[in-house]
């Protein structure tokens, strides 16, 4: 579904991504792991067109390089940013409506379904998004992206700053999303959630992929974890 080949990216004169290559198949949960500053967030921002890409990014067989962020989103690639970016003055319902690409679209997710899955959001449907807790904001941000009916979503550090119980809920939601045929690229620093729900993992270091394997193989690769993940 997503095929990234030899991707390079720059912030000014700084070379951030040094030929990143990986792929994600339909309905698969793939984690992109690594310590802070290795280029994980830049990778997804580059795929979304926020940072100018050099290389090849093919999504459902179509080249994305040169396309604008909204065009990429229209092709079915969703993105949940690290800072969540809830629209604080808009209500929960308005935040969700904003995720819909068209009023006529009837995708895999409806407002009612989202509210059924998250009674917390339903109860606070008419409350401003800015007053929600961190966990609720994360759920809202993910649901907002789902309202656009993506075929794949890239989620940047969804468990950042969340309580363990909420992290568990986020993991369950990601699995529920994948069950509906939506591929997920999970960008994480904590590998516990990634190992629990992913089919495959990639580890980034120094702006490139340094390891590819399954959660089981990563668990056995103590040297890889020590070198690239553990602090």
């Amino acid at each position: 579904m997503l095929e990234v080949t030899n991707l390079h990216a720059y912030y000014g004169k700084s070379h951030i991504l040094h030929g990143v290559s990986f792929n994600v198949q339909q309905g698969e949960i793939v984690s992109l792991l690594g310590r802070n500053g290795v280029g994980r967030s830049t990778t997804v921002k580059t795929i979304m067109g926020e940072v100018e890409p050099h290389g090849s990014i093919r999504f459902k067989g179509e080249e994305l390089v040169g396309k604008k962020s909204f065009e990429i989103a229209h092709r079915g690639l969703g993105y949940v940013p690290e800072n969540r970016d809830i629209f604080p003055t808009l209500t929960v319902r308005q935040n969700l409506v904003l995720g819909m690409k068209s009023t006529k679209a009837t995708g895999r997710w409806t407002l009612d379904e989202v509210f059924d899955m998250f009674p917390n959001l339903s109860e606070r449907a008419d409350v401003a998004g800015g007053v929600l807790s961190g966990g609720e904001q994360q759920m809202l941000c993910m649901c907002r992206t789902l309202m656009g009916d993506p075929d794949m979503i890239m989620i940047d550090e969804p468990t950042e700053g969340l309580a363990p119980m909420i992290v568990e809920q986020v993991g369950n939601l990601l699995q529920e999303i994948a069950k509906r045929g939506v591929a997920i690229l999970l960008v994480e620093q904590k590998f516990s959630i990634a190992l629990r729900i992913s089919q495959r993992v990639y580890i980034m270091g120094h702006g490139k992929i340094v390891y590819e394997g399954t959660p089981a193989s990563l668990m056995q690769a103590d040297d890889v974890r020590a070198e690239w993940l553990e602090v």
């Binding site: 989103a73 629209f87 003055t89 808009l90 409506v97 904003l98």
Partner: peptide, 24 residues
């Protein structure tokens, strides 16, 4: 209206709105 909500959001968070598929 939906377009009004998009405009309000685009004023403060243009990148996020673009990532949701709206032509900012």
């Amino acid at each position: 209206t939906r377009i009004g909500i998009i405009i309000q959001a685009a004023i403060t968070h243009p990148k996020t709105v673009a990532n949701l598929g709206h032509n900012v």
